[in-house]
Design a protein around this nucleic acid. Structure first.
Lengths: 276, 276
DNA sequence: GTGAATTGTTCCATTATTTGGAACTGAATT
DNA sequence: AATTCAGTTCCAAATAATGGAACAATTCAC
């Protein structure tokens, strides 16, 4: 297994809940915070652990957890440890299998993988995170869920940066205001200032690199996919180890990546155009 | 792609929501019903579609859907169509990656796949459904989420039947009372009566076959995994096309399948035993 | 292009659910 | 046996959800 596939999730915790638009009020909102807590934990949590993390009164928390367990969103084992519920898998399997964007992109991702021999990703922006919707790899059978579904920061990934480059100025400012700039490697942007400079450049050239910014030794080149009104829909990227992907090679691959993105856009227009 | 991998999900709809313990009351319960409706639909639903399916007052439904969208559990596109939200993928990726049972079973599933050359599954019982937690396949790269996370009926799958065979009599009766016996093939049990007879046999011999009961042309042999007190934890199975897997071969494979199940039980005892 | 029908959204007094402090049980520790 | 800690239950008060009706915005028919 290549090193970048076994990427540990600890880095993910820095995200907090960067996916939802943050609505921690209302019955559902509060329950989702709990679900986030448990799913983001490195190990199953005891009642008391959650109590200290959630800062809710004991009685309240207990009932909330009971409800989540009753719905299959959490599971409570015999030792009183709460883990994510498997019903989530069923939901996810369905949302993935029927996702129109992914279905349209799929053949083009496969073509791009064939052309370059490296790993290809499809990602979308949700909140401040990039969620990988699909991944096409060459050699080894993919350990599913290994990357798909994972949320990564937008400020240090290729897909993330092309996403930001298409955002209207004010949305960009709003989004970055909520980002916690964790320094994953020496190359990670440490502040909005340096990031913004690169974003403008990316907006001009139409593609972005990840120069080992999220993980040492891993590079990528990404291109955006947008709708008629230039709204960002998602991004395609080619990812691989730095020893194999020189910056020169990556720069050459900007062309096929953008072509693949273009074909996906074409597919979206054919499929969705008439209805809009 | 082998035919049984592209199994369409229409059959799944017969399940209804067979996963949760049915708690359609309470704020969360009502919202989960909606989430189920949308995720089980064959295509994205409009507001009015959901209105007729959910049988809620317009105002109420509208607010509920708004909340689900705000939390990222549903997505509303420009055409007013509701689709499952991608935040579910993030939740699922985490619950899968850290699932202890799956992590313990993984190497033994791989061994079994190597030994037989056929597809190996790991499934657990949730409500009246079997949820596939893992899948190890030989040749082609697995299209992830293709089977993993999918819920299948318990009365016509190998893993499902070994699950039932370990249930205490009354639990079994309760569970079957809620099952809607859909006839998928000519071999599918059409009533609890014939199923119960086979269940007793399975309890005695310690393994179960699926004789093309869920899908024509697909057979499997499965063995149960249980904890110290003989509680069913999950099942391992070898699945493949009937033309390659004669019933004789399948009967021989009952041995390695049970061995794999045994090794997983051993792993569970080592990992979890001390803590209990 | 106008009017009618359908679809989607907002409002607010009523109703139902959640809240959270406190009291309670049970197990582990000293 | 006494004490602490983890987990559960209870119920008046606070909060959020409900749903009917009025209001917009589309779509459709003519």
């Amino acid at each position: 297994m290549l090193p970048f596939l076994s990427r540990a999730d600890e880095t993910m915790n820095a995200n907090g809940r960067g996916i939802a638009q943050a609505r921690e009020t209302g019955t559902l909102g509060k329950l989702m915070v709990l679900l986030d807590l448990v799913t983001h934990a490195d190990a199953p949590l005891r009642f008391t652990d959650i109590l200290s993390l959630a800062g809710q009164p004991r009685g309240t928390l207990h009932r909330q957890l009971t409800h989540l367990v009753e719905e299959g969103l959490l599971e409570l084992d015999g030792d009183g440890r709460y883990a994510p519920g498997l019903r989530l898998l069923d939901f996810a399997a369905r949302s993935w299998a029927r996702n129109e964007f992914r279905l349209i992109a799929e053949p083009h991702l496969a073509d791009l993988q064939q052309a370059t021999g490296e790993t290809v990703h499809l990602g979308v922006l949700r909140g401040q995170s990039i969620i990988y919707l699909d991944k096409v790899e060459g050699r080894q059978p993919v350990r599913m869920y290994s990357q798909i579904g994972n949320a990564s920061p937008c400020y240090c990934t290729g897909v993330g940066k092309v996403a930001l480059s298409l955002l209207p100025a004010e949305s960009l400012v709003d989004l970055l205001a909520g980002v916690n700039f964790t320094r994953f490697t020496a190359a990670t942007h440490a502040s909005p200032a340096s990031l913004l400079a690169e974003i403008h450049e990316i907006a001009d050239q139409g593609y972005a690199f990840d120069r080992e910014e999220h993980e040492a030794g891993i590079r990528c080149v990404a291109a955006p996919i947008w709708s008629e009104d230039r709204t960002f829909l998602g991004g395609v990227s080619i990812t691989g180890p730095a020893y194999r992907l020189s910056m020169e090679l990556l720069a050459q691959w900007a062309v096929p990546v953008r072509q693949a993105a273009g074909r996906i856009m074409e597919g979206m227009r054919i499929r969705l155009g008439p209805r809009r």
